[in-house]
Design a protein around this nucleic acid. Structure first.
Lengths: 126, 126
DNA sequence: CAGGCTAGGTTTCCGATAGGAACCAGCAGG
DNA sequence: CCTGCTGGTTCCTATCGGAAACCTAGCCTG
């Protein structure tokens, strides 16, 4: 007996599932975190994050924008300048994200340790 | 300058990045949540989650196991029975995940609303 | 005036991955 | 003997991710 009742979990149909899939992306959390301190430019994000390609950054930003989590501000200057910032809605995601990063800070070592200790978690007898 | 100093963020090299990539997966969070109430069998998870294939479930479980977040318990019975449960380390992830699901519960509608309102977030003049 | 620079974005190409369907193992029951 | 239950794996393909090149548009330099 696991205690899951209908509507008690996001395990099948509830809206939470959608939101989880929103952020269950390699870059979404990182990008949101990068914007957590204020408006940041496209190029700044590239350097800040390190490892993301322009394409994926743009793609991620567009999706976040479409979901109402960030706002895009393009200045008609030369060279072009585009700043992204969290919307109030997006800002509400920072707290959960911070919890995740705090968890990571606290337990990252343990995870790496487990990875190191259990290279073959399933003892198959083949 | 937005206030990120070296070591201040997970934006480039710190271990938090690794952990974020651990859970930044379509199914990881859902599976962990599914295990949050106690040991669950493989087949139960399939039905509980709804939409995950056996392959992806196995794959996700293996990864979580390798990272030390869950433990696998195979009973030598017929028909075979395999139960998965959170390790203490994995249990520490439940709180952050709960924050995420709470956020989703609270703001899922707003996200869907934004999706509905902004079908074309970038006003390209092409 | 031609060419280069900047900065954001898009396109193209290709390798990696996700994910579903089908198959396998091993034994109990009809 | 054949089917079914359960967990897992293999095969195959559609999609995704990343690198690099190209585009736009205006200013600056030679």
């Amino acid at each position: 007996m696991s205690g899951f009742g209908p509507g008690d979990s996001f395990l099948a149909d509830c809206p939470a599932r959608l939101a989880v899939e929103l952020i269950a992306d390699k870059w979404t959390v990182v990008v949101l975190y990068g914007l957590s301190k204020g408006p940041v430019r496209h190029g700044e994000l590239i350097e800040l994050i390190g490892g993301i390609s322009r394409k994926m950054l743009t793609q991620t930003l567009r999706r976040l924008q479409a979901h109402g989590l960030i706002r895009r501000h393009a200045y008609a200057e030369v060279p072009p300048r585009v700043e992204y910032e969290l919307t109030p809605l997006g800002a509400t995601l920072i707290d959960p994200i911070h919890m995740l990063t705090e968890w990571a800070r606290a337990n990252g070592d343990a995870v790496l340790d487990a990875l190191d200790a259990d290279p073959e978690p399933v003892a198959h007898s083949d």
